[in-house]
Design a protein around this nucleic acid. Structure first.
Length: 701
DNA sequence: TTTAGGG
DNA sequence: CCCTAAA
């Protein structure tokens, strides 16, 4: 036959590519520049800014650097998980995810907001996560910064983001992380944060103590960021530090916690410089915050740790290649639930259907858009006050909601796996792309090219009616990470839950990096490298304009980052997704079964072979069987010295050759028979038979 | 969808 | 194991 070709894929060609084919090109990043001037920012810019904000790590907070190390920090910072029993599995319904606040803002050094100091905080995110277990903590509520454990149990672990309360007063109030708080503790801690912190920190607005997210962002270079040498790198704050939305069913009314952001005394001119910004892919996947950092802040430890520890290609590749997370076009494969004969390291997977959940693997099902049917008017809270001379539009988005998630996870699963599961669920939702819609007075603003000025968004009286919605990226036909392609498919025109915004397919993949191994920092580093390599222009642009750089602020900055990602995203939609299946070498018994089936059915009837011998092996397609036969044949034909991998018994190989020879002859004869068919209607042979029609005749038996 | 075959 | 042309 045509097996002259070297079938090397059966031997050394099976290595899972370090970089999946589909994502190779996607890892490139296109440098670009984008200027945003005052009201000239177009609607597109605005969209991009919002989307990018979601994408980016909440690094605006120095404290968020600690989040970097919070390995198991769930990407779902604020969510609500409802648990239900299901045959030993826990069904967790994650109904909402709120990302507290996005505060795209301008860099107008002259701007000084009196009404909403938070706007001066740069991007600020007070997000946290609350997972309620219906069984034990049916209604643990976080109200006004306090946790009310109505069931009195402590099973629910409320983990807050590793935030550090930062105020202009150089106040850092770390709290041990992952603390299970009793009511007493909560009260105590709350007092501490409300009182002690207040004492230490000359807060101008006491509201910040009222369970509001700590004002983490300060561009003041004089403010020392918590260094690892001084503080526990895993600094986190108790939940009551945040104005956590009540995670009850009425998430529609969730009052964003950031209504009263902490005050800021910091003028804008000391805004972080873009050059110092690090867009961390990984963080983009895990934390949806904006990375804003003060160059002068003491991040040395952080940076060094980051760079020396993770920022090198080899490390990145090693870790990355080490992941054998199986992906398939536009859907997760649930191969994890099946026997993994090669011992591949599929640590986790998302299967499309709960019933396919086996072996303790979690499966996630995006069930529905919970309570997010409108155009989410609540998404935006606009600034009303604008300096008439300020050409910038300042927006504050209180929160985005993630729709309901349905999670099935074995009760034996660890909390860490639950976190990862939730994280991946959220990740999956937006894996296919996040779109942001702009709503003005309830109407969608579809013209992306209109300026805010033209659309009236910049007008004060319009700010109230401005809204944002998360929705499927129009350029995406389907989310890339949707299990089975459907459960996570997001209906169009339905405000989408927030999740990370995949900058490229590579991210999608990397996001799921096995949490049990190492932090996904290498991913971020990869991004950083890319940033250095390809995105130097924005950086340089700002770094080399010395004076101007200080005048440049959030909006332009975010636009830069956002837009950097957008083209990549669009570009990658073509090549993204397709992930290689995990390699599963055939076992001897499988080979035996295959040989036997082919002996009986002949070659060329792979579907029948599949049904006959591998009907229960879901991961073996008829194409796989055909391929295996091909390699078996090749193996049989080469010398034993040339063979690699697990040796196949010679006996089987001989049978392969025999069967192949036999069926080749059959095929030839049949063809021969067809030609003179009409001429030789009486052709009869005891030898020939009708091989292809007589399934049960084991000719080679 | 299956088959066949190149990659 | 992937991808695809053909059937």
């Amino acid at each position: 036959m045509v097996l002259q070709k070297r079938l090397d894929y059966g031997f050394n060609g099976y290595q899972v590519p370090t970089i999946p084919r589909a994502t190779r090109s996607a890892r490139k990043r296109v440098p670009f520049r984008k200027r945003v001037e005052g009201n000239r920012i177009s609607a597109f810019d605005l969209l991009a800014t919002v989307a990018g904000t979601l994408l980016l790590d909440k690094e605006s907070s120095p404290a968020s650097n600690n989040a970097w190390n919070a390995e198991d920090q769930s990407a779902v910072e604020k969510n609500n998980v409802k648990e239900e029993r299901q045959d030993g599995d826990q069904s967790l319904k994650l109904e909402t995810c709120n990302v507290s606040e996005l505060v795209p803002q301008t860099n107008d050094p002259n701007y000084s907001s009196r009404e909403s100091p938070s706007l001066q905080n740069g991007t600020q995110f007070g997000v946290t996560s609350a997972i309620t277990t219906s069984e034990r903590l049916d209604s643990q509520k976080l109200i006004n910064g306090k946790i009310k454990n109505e069931m009195g149990g402590l099973a629910c672990k409320v983990e807050t983001g590793p935030f550090v309360s930062r105020t202009p007063g150089d106040c850092v109030e770390p709290v041990s992380e992952n603390k299970v708080l009793t009511d007493e503790e909560l009260d105590r801690t709350n007092k501490a944060s409300s009182g002690e912190v207040a004492d230490k920190c000359p807060l101008e607005d006491p509201l910040v103590l009222d369970g509001k997210p700590p004002a983490v962002v300060s561009s003041d270079s004089s403010i020392k960021a918590p260094s690892f040498g001084e503080h526990d790198p895993f600094i986190s704050f108790p939940i009551q530090q945040y104005d956590v939305n009540v995670v009850s069913r009425d998430d529609d009314e969730k009052s964003s916690g950031c209504t009263h952001p902490s005050p800021i005394r910091e003028p804008f001119r000391s805004t972080p410089r873009i050059g110092d910004r690090r867009i961390r892919k990984i963080l983009a996947s895990r934390y949806w915050k904006v990375a804003l950092r003060s160059k002068n802040a003491t991040y040395s430890n952080y940076d060094e740790n980051l760079k020396s520890g993770y920022c090198n290609r080899s490390t990145y590749k090693r870790l990355r290649s080490g992941r054998n997370f199986p992906f398939k076009k536009r859907k997760f494969l649930h191969y994890t639930s099946e026997s993994n004969s090669d011992g591949g390291t599929i640590g986790e997977g998302i299967s499309d259907l709960p019933e396919k959940n086996i072996n303790g693997k979690a499966s996630i099902l995006y069930s529905k858009m919970h309570g997010v049917t409108g155009e989410s008017s609540s998404l935006a809270d606009q600034r009303k006050s604008f300096n008439s001379r300020d050409p910038h539009v300042k927006l504050r988005i209180k929160s985005f909601r993630v729709p309901e998630l349905f999670i099935v996870i074995p009760e034996s699963a660890t909390v860490g796996s639950l976190k990862r599961t939730v994280k991946e669920a959220v990740t999956a939702i937006l894996g296919g792309g996040l779109g942001v819609g702009v709503l003005l007075q309830g109407k969608k603003v579809r013209d992306d090219n209109k300026t805010l000025l033209q659309t009236g968004i910049s007008r004060d009286n319009q700010m109230d009616s401005l809204g944002f919605s998360l929705e499927p990226n129009p350029s995406h036909t389907s989310p890339s990470l949707c299990p089975g392609g459907s459960p996570l498919t997001l209906p169009h025109d339905i405000p989408l839950p927030l999740a990370r915004y995949p900058a490229n397919p590579g991210l999608v993949n990397q996001v799921t990096c096995h949490p049990s191994t190492e932090p996904c920092i290498p991913n971020a580093c990869d991004f950083i490298e890319s940033n250095n390599d390809c995105m130097a222009s924005p950086t340089d642009m700002f770094d080399k304009s010395t004076t101007e750089s200080k005048a440049l602020v959030a909006v332009p900055a975010m636009s830069v980052e956002t837009l950097a990602a957008v083209p990549v995203h669009k570009k990658s939609k073509q090549s993204e997704v397709a992930q290689r299946r995990i390699r599963r070498p055939f076992s001897i018994s499988e080979v035996e079964a295959l040989v036997q089936a082919v002996e009986k059915l002949g070659t060329g009837r792979w579907r029948d072979v599949k049904l006959r011998a591998f009907d229960n092996a879901k991961h073996r397609t008829y194409v796989d069987l055909k391929d295996k036969w091909k390699t078996l044949l090749h193996t049989a034909r080469i010398s034993p010295q040339q063979r690699r991998g697990e040796p196949v018994p010679q006996e089987l190989l001989d049978r392969v050759l025999n069967a192949h020879t036999y069926w080749s002859q059959q095929q030839a004869k049949q063809q021969q028979q067809q030609l003179p068919e009409s001429c030789l209607p009486h052709y009869n042979s005891t030898m020939i038979g009708s091989g292809r029609c007589d399934d049960d005749e084991n000719i080679l038996g």
